[in-house]
Design a protein around this nucleic acid. Structure first.
Length: 268
DNA sequence: CTGTGTTAC
DNA sequence: GTAACACAG
């Protein structure tokens, strides 16, 4: 065998070897995309997850969500906000990305462009600043809802800041949040992303044997009223949305705390 | 903190 | 598309 033949064989093996390896990598990546969003990630505690009325629950590293295809947004986003999650790190704002883990296709961010509405985070970027990955993951289109800017930067922002305060004060809380979705809502963009008329946020402190819960229901309008004016019972939000928020909680506890709209155990 | 829009490559 | 910058509640 001449040297030339040996080199030719080596070259062929090399080329096909690289091609095969890249093919293998691509397959692996495709599989990862298909599988992504199926598994409950460690920062999210399955015990606290609400029921889904849409049948499409997606799990990310930093939060879980239930996607409503007809409204092109999540009906709820749930995550644990631990005290150690709170961080002062200031990451650069990335671009929004379509959430590939949503099988029916999550909304394109272009629906929001020039719509007059903010891309309002459901799980706030500021709640996931413990790592760049967690922070950037909040910029998926499955985690946003059209929000009036005055509302988003106003009382909703105030509520988000207060939630971080409670996470710090009570050594972590569990948060579920979303817009109240329904029929005949105004829509934006070619994909008709629904604009909720109300937003809710439910905060659970489950650290000691005496769990306490707080539910907020806010009209989609800014307000200068104090936050506690918007406290309702969890039952109220459940009736409005059809979602069962803490199905795994012991029934007796669930019945008791969900009926309350008493905020005296919480410091405002 | 919460965001948007414009300009230039 | 991406990056830099100005702007607003």
């Amino acid at each position: 065998m001449t040297n030339r033949t040996v080199y030719s064989i080596l070259a062929i093996v090399l080329v096909f070897g690289v091609y095969g390896y890249e093919f293998f990598l691509n397959k692996k990546e495709e599989q990862a995309i298909v599988d992504s969003g199926r598994e409950i990630k460690t920062p999210t505690v399955a015990f606290f997850l609400p029921t889904s009325t849409t049948g499409q629950v997606v799990h990310h590293q930093g939060y879980s969500l239930s996607y409503s295809e007809s409204h092109e947004q999540a009906e709820w986003v749930a995550y644990e906000l631990k005290k150690e999650h709170l961080s002062q790190t200031n990451f650069e704002r990335p671009y929004f990305e379509i959430d590939k883990a949503v099988k029916t296709g999550a909304a394109n961010w272009r629906n929001y462009k020039n719509s007059g509405y903010d891309r309002g985070h459901l799980c706030p970027a500021a709640d996931r600043r413990y790592s760049k990955e967690a922070h950037d993951e909040t910029f998926l289109t499955s985690n946003i809802s059209p929000q009036n800017h005055d509302f988003n930067s106003g009382i909703w922002n105030t509520l988000e800041q207060k939630t971080r305060y409670w996470a710090s004060k009570y050594n972590g809380v569990f948060v579920v949040t979303g817009g109240v979705l329904g029929r005949n809502l105004k829509t934006i963009g070619s994909e008709k992303v629904a604009v909720p008329n109300q937003f809710y946020k439910i905060i659970l402190d489950y650290n000691d044997g005496n769990p306490k819960v707080l539910a907020f229901l806010m009209p989609h309008v800014n307000s200068i009223k104090p936050l506690y004016e918007f406290v309702v019972s969890v039952d109220t939000v459940e009736e409005l949305t059809g979602i069962d928020f803490f199905p795994e909680l012991e029934d007796a506890i669930e019945t008791r705390i969900e009926a309350l709209s008493d905020y005296r155990k919480w410091r405002f």
